[in-house]
Design a binder for these strands. Structure first.
Length: 436
RNA sequence: GUCCGGAUGGUGUAGUGGCCUAUCAUGAAAGCCUGUCGAGCUUUCGACCCGGGUCCGAAUCCCGGUCCGGGCGCCA
């Protein structure tokens, strides 16, 4: 679609286009006034373009106007491309017309040219300005590319995209860590996972579904890898076991890396990253093996049946050094809907996908037998009555099924080696931040 | 939640009892400059989180608060 205010982006221009007249629109990234010559660097989402004004040649009014433009003002430039070895990227724009569409106030809340460092908190307070910084914009363009790749992968596997409700009734999964909201005359909650709804769609015969959407967790955690609102990439597949969906998961991850490497070269360059596509299949390590490994190292002993603490996660990540699956977890620390091994009920067919830095996804072969599921709910100290809408779906023919949920921002964070998950979310929601 | 650390111009920082009329960079304002590309040069502007206390004297020490960062916990 052609837009009236722009014919090209900065990044689309090359010296071979010399002589053609174009229309650029963007922000005044920098204005360098050397006296007899003045450079206006225009920035748009694809890069920078130098607009060169020679005092003797251009209109006096235009020269004066450019010198008075404040940084980050929105400008539109009509001009001719000139091949010029002295200019960045070998070209410059000789302007015929410059319009200031909106003048930016001074001072700026942070420096979009990235010359001066800025703390994350300051950046998040002025996120709109922060995203003008090319490296920050690159991250979010890569997030989009990851989603594109994963959606493509799902569609190639004939998986149907669905949406499930984010506003749910009380006590669906215990209730302690859900955000309560007011819903007309009723109390409601923000859903912490599409889990139960995905499973109900297996009973509906949708066969394989995926959902990419927000999840909400009311835990008061305060770390660099947790948020209270996150985007979860979830799938559920009928007539599949945990190994089938683990294969889908590693393929989804690998295709995301590949797609980013092939389609986001400019962004990766800005971020100074040499992306390495992980090899699949990923290693599989059982929980029991992991505990044995950790026992050799740990100062504080870890016991079979404990959930893995941060120290153990880091230790395992350090010795394994790449993505891996943790399988065969104790049934006691996995949710009620995780299927136990028939011959060894102490362990179950749940798995976690780990990156050396942190957990990225978890999934399982699900319980599809109503009686067993009801018992498991009771065993976990929960009330089957609260799950009636869910359990009903298991009464009239539920196929065996498996699935997983993957944290989008954690995937991006580990892919791009970001220090804080907030760097991978445009407007993050954490224990303290509700604005912007 | 808990432990540790921190809060200084718009932004990022130096300064741990008097040498602070507070450092440096960036920025902003004015001026010089025809090839900058983190341009350069000259002049100027702009800050000690809030409240209480100790002291002749507090950005600096103490107490309380607020906010921020890091570790851990929590994360069916």
């Amino acid at each position: 679609m052609d837009l009236i205010l722009r014919t090209h982006y900065s990044g689309d221009i090359n010296p071979e286009m010399a002589g053609s007249e174009i229309l650029l629109a963007g922000w005044a990234h920098e204005i360098r006034d050397l006296g007899g010559i003045c450079f206006l660097v225009l920035r748009d989402r694809k890069g920078l373009a130098q607009v060169t004004l020679v005092k003797k040649i251009v209109d006096t009014e235009m020269f004066k106007k450019v010198r008075s433009i404040s940084r980050e003002s929105v400008v539109q430039v009509r001009g001719e491309i000139k091949s010029e070895s002295k200019a960045p990227h070998g070209f410059e724009i000789l302007p015929k017309e410059i319009n200031v569409l909106d003048m930016a106030k001074v001072p700026l809340p942070l420096d979009p040219t990235e010359k001066v460092e800025c703390e994350l908190d300051t950046r998040l307070d002025s996120r709109f300005m922060d995203i003008r910084r090319p490296s920050v914009l690159s991250i979010f363009e890569i997030v989009s590319s990851v989603l594109h790749a994963i959606r493509d992968f799902f569609y190639s596997q004939n998986i149907t995209e669905v949406f499930t409700p984010k506003i749910v009734a009380a006590a669906t999964e215990g209730g302690t860590d859900l955000f309560p909201i007011s819903y007309f005359e009723k109390e409601a909650f923000l859903n912490q996972s599409p889990q139960l709804y995905k499973q109900m769609l297996m009973a509906a015969g949708m066969d394989r579904v995926f959902e990419i959407g927000p999840i909400f967790r009311a835990e008061e955690h305060d770390t660099r890898k947790h948020l209270n609102e996150a985007i979860s990439i979830d799938i559920e597949v009928s007539f599949a076991d945990e190994n089938d969906v683990m294969a889908m998961l590693e393929n989804a991850i690998a295709s995301a890396y590949k797609h980013v490497k092939e389609n986001c070269q400019r962004q990766l360059e800005i971020l100074n990253l040499d992306l390495v596509v992980p090899n699949i299949p990923f290693k599989k390590i059982t929980y029991t093996e992991a505990i044995e490994l950790a026992k050799n190292d740990k100062s504080v002993p870890i016991q079979w049946g404990d959930d893995l603490d941060t120290e153990t996660e880091k230790f395992l990540g350090g010795i394994i050094g790449e993505h891996y699956f943790l399988t065969e977890w104790p049934s006691s620390i996995k949710p009620y809907y995780t299927l136990q091994y028939e011959d060894r009920p102490k362990i179950c067919r749940g798995f976690d996908l780990m990156h050396p830095r942190m957990e990225l996804a978890s999934g399982a072969q699900r319980v599809h037998d109503l009686q067993m599921l009801t018992q498991r709910i009771k065993d976990k100290g929960l009330e089957p009555e609260s799950f009636e809408f869910y359990l009903d779906a298991f009464k009239y023919g539920m196929p065996p099924h498996s699935g997983w949920g993957l944290g989008l921002s954690r995937l991006v964070m580990t892919m791009l080696d970001l220090e804080n998950i907030r760097d991978a979310v445009i407007f993050p929601r954490d224990r303290r931040r509700l604005v912007p």
